[in-house]
Amino acid sequence: MSSASAIEAAAATIERRRRNYARHYIWFVVPAAIAVLGTILFPWAFTFYISAFDWRLGSTREFVGFANYTKLFTDERFGWALLRTLYYTTLSVIFPLILGLAAALIFNHKFPLRGLARTIFILPMMATPVAVALVWTMMFHPQLGVLNWLLQQVGIPPSMWVYHADSVIPTLVLVEVWHWTPLVMLLLLGGLAALPIDPYEAAKIDGATPLQVFRYITLPLLAPYLVVALIIRTIDALKAFDTIYVITQGGPGSASETINIYLYLQAFAFYNMGYASAVVVVFFALILTLAALLMWTREKVRP
């Protein structure tokens, strides 16, 4: 009895000493924390401040309170940009998840040259987005592009790709899918490697078909990883900028103007800093809400 409490007391001392020590380690973090404060936290606070002004670069700067925010509600262009962003994001989440899952299942098998195949498969996500976007732009050319030639070969009528309002977003999604399916694959491949083998052996004994094994064992066990991939993909698709900016700059007209592009135009084409800052705040709130919602789902699916 007394020895047990002695051990407890000793454990408490060790724990206290560890925490004491921990305090010294704060100095390792301080320089980085200052950099984070300067480059990440300060901009947030300052953005919020700017959003309360009618702040035009090089001319007026007038305090307007929440006027920028109320203006957002009646700004039709912003509303459309928001809807477009959601449309773009939905498509850019669903397809990479499906394809990434298929790819992860295949790369989970052992086969000759697997390492090389996997490296090639992840090249798109490492490549410089601007460089790749330029090649896509050339391929989308309605008259001279290689994609319309390919369509012609298999008997499909040519598409206008990014040159028509109806097809521009699905086309941009195609580029996004090409770009980011590898990240989904890597995340899910990590998940597959961590799955227990017992359920699979039991299923084998019971004579389950591969489809049943996938449906009733792999999918449920993989669910937490799928949700992580879903979260990351959603955030990245909402933030997409490079390829849209390079390929269409929001066009034709404003058919591919997502919030990010709208934001860019307000701030750095019209120099409307106050209004753009209000857009940033709302946009960021939207991202945080979605991320929090998905995190909450993640807690739910955890076995």
Binding site: P43, F241, Y264, S277, F283
Partner: peptide
Amino acid sequence: LAGLILIARITPGLSYLIPLFL
């Protein structure tokens, strides 16, 4: 503290740019 760093990961790049540009 690590979670705070993750927030940097989800913030759109453009949102740093307006204040830092000024």
